[in-house]
C-alpha cells in the first residue's frame, strides 16, 4: 500500500520552519516508510484559503497534514494560550516538550479532538524591536507597536503602549512609514522582514523570555486511520514529545543567524537585568490573573491549566 499526503502551510518553502523542520520531517517519514509514503508539499497556502483556515482544512481533509499558528483562530484552541503567557517559557526545546505533555493530557480530547496530532511547539523567545531604545516599562509609554497574539496585545496595553493590529507581512512597511514604532516578534522572523534595517534597538529579557507563540502540526484523522499499521507506525515514530522538542529546538536555533544580522549592523541590543525584568513581570502577573478570570468556566479550569503548564515547563527545563 502506498499513500500520498498533501502537506499545506502558510510560509514560503525557503523560510526557516518549512525548510528546517517540515521538509526534514517529511523527508524522514518518506525514507522510513521505504518510499510507501509520499508527502507533497504545498507552501504559501497553495492549496487555497487563508492561514486561519488551515485548522479547518486538516479536519475536513482538504489537506492531509498542516502546520499553523494556534493564534490564527482565536477561541478555537483556548488551552494553548497558557503557553503564550508572558515570561512562562524557558527555552523553546524544553517548553515544547512540556507543551506536548500538557496537550496530551488536556487537549487531545478537547481543542485537538478532531485532528491527529504530530507535534506542538513554541518558537524562541519573543523580542521587542523598536526605533527608540526600550529598557523600562516607562519607555513603552505611547509607543505604537504590533504585538502577535491576544495575550501579548493585552500585556502591552497594560504596559502603556498603543497596540496596533496588523498581519505580520505589513510590519516592514508600517515600521518604515512610522505607522508603528516597534514590533514584537522572535528573532527568526526578523530576517525575512528585514526588521534590523528598519529599527536600531532590540530588547531581550536576559534569562527570561517575554512571550512565545504556539504552533500545531497535525494530520487528518481519516487519512491516518486509513493507513496500514506499518505506515501508521512510521507516523507515530515521528510524532510526539521528541518531535515537538526537536522542532522547538530548531525554531530557537534559527534565531541566531537573524540576531547576527542585527549585531553586524551595529544595532543596539539591550539585554535587561533581572531587576529590570521584575518590573515587567509585575504587569505580566496581572495579565495571567485576567486570563484565568476570563476563560474559566465550569468545565475549563484556567487556573489549574496555567499551574500545570508552569509545572511541566519547570519539570522539563533542566
Amino acid at each position: 500500500q502506498e499513500v500520498t499526503l498533501k502537506m499545506h502551510q502558510f510560509l514560503p518553502a525557503q523560510a526557516a520552519a518549512p525548510k528546517l523542520i517540515l521538509d526534514v520531517w517529511a523527508d524522514k517519514v518518506e525514507q522510513q516508510s521505504g518510499g510507501k509514503i509520499k508527502i507533497e508539499r504545498y507552501p504559501s497556502m497553495q492549496l487555497g484559503g487563508k492561514p486561519p483556515e488551515l485548522a479547518s482544512q486538516v479536519v475536513d481533509g482538504i489537506a492531509d497534514i498542516i502546520w499553523t499558528v494556534t493564534g490564527y483562530t482565536p477561541g478555537r484552541f483556548p488551552r494553548s494560550e497558557a503557553f503564550e503567557m508572558p515570561f512562562i517559557m524557558t527555552n523553546a526545546e524544553d517548553t515544547s516538550r512540556a507543551y506536548w505533555e500538557y496537550a496530551e493530557k488536556n487537549m487531545l480530547d478537547t481543542d485537538f479532538a478532531d485532528m491527529k496530532m504530530i507535534g506542538v511547539w513554541v518558537h524562541g523567545p519573543g523580542v521587542i524591536h523598536s526605533k527608540e531604545p526600550i529598557t523600562s516599562v516607562e519607555d513603552l509609554n505611547g509607543v505604537k507597536l504590533r504585538a502577535p497574539s491576544r495575550v501579548t496585545n493585552k500585556l502591552f496595553s497594560k504596559l502603556g503602549a498603543t497596540p496596533i493590529g496588523m498581519p505580520v507581512p505589513a510590519v516592514p512597511e508600517s515600521l518604515s512609514k512610522g505607522v508603528i514604532d516597534a514590533a514584537v516578534i522572535p528573532w527568526e522572523v526578523t530576517s525575512a522582514l528585514k526588521v534590523a534595517e528598519l529599527v536600531g534597538n532590540h530588547t531581550e529579557f536576559g534569562e527570561d523570555a517575554l512571550y512565545s507563540t504556539t504552533f500545531l502540526f497535525a494530520m487528518n484523522k481519516d487519512t491516518y486511520d486509513s493507513m496500514s499499521d506499518e505506515l501508521k507506525a512510521v507516523i507515530d515514530a515521528n510524532s510526539g514529545a521528541d518531535m515537538s522538542a526537536w522542532a522547538g529546538k530548531i525554531m530557537q536555533e534559527a534565531d541566531a543567524p537573524a540576531r547576527k544580522i542585527a549585531v553586524d549592523r551595529g544595532n543596539n541590543i539591550i539585554n535587561l537585568t533581572p531587576e529590570q525584568v521584575a518590573e515587567w513581570k509585575t504587569v505580566a502577573a496581572s495579565v495571567e490573573k485576567d486570563w484565568v478570570e476570563e476563560v474559566s468556566t465550569d468545565d475549563f479550569d484556567g487556573k489549574a491549566l496555567l499551574e500545570e503548564a508552569k509545572a511541566l515547563i519547570a519539570k522539563h527545563s533542566k
Partner: peptide, 16 residues
C-alpha cells in the same frame, strides 16, 4: 455552523 462550534473569534476585539 463550524465557526460557531469551534468558537472562533477575532484576535483583539473577539468578534465572533
Amino acid at each position: 455552523a463550524a465557526k460557531m462550534r469551534y468558537n472562533e473569534s477575532t484576535t483583539l476585539m473577539q468578534i465572533p
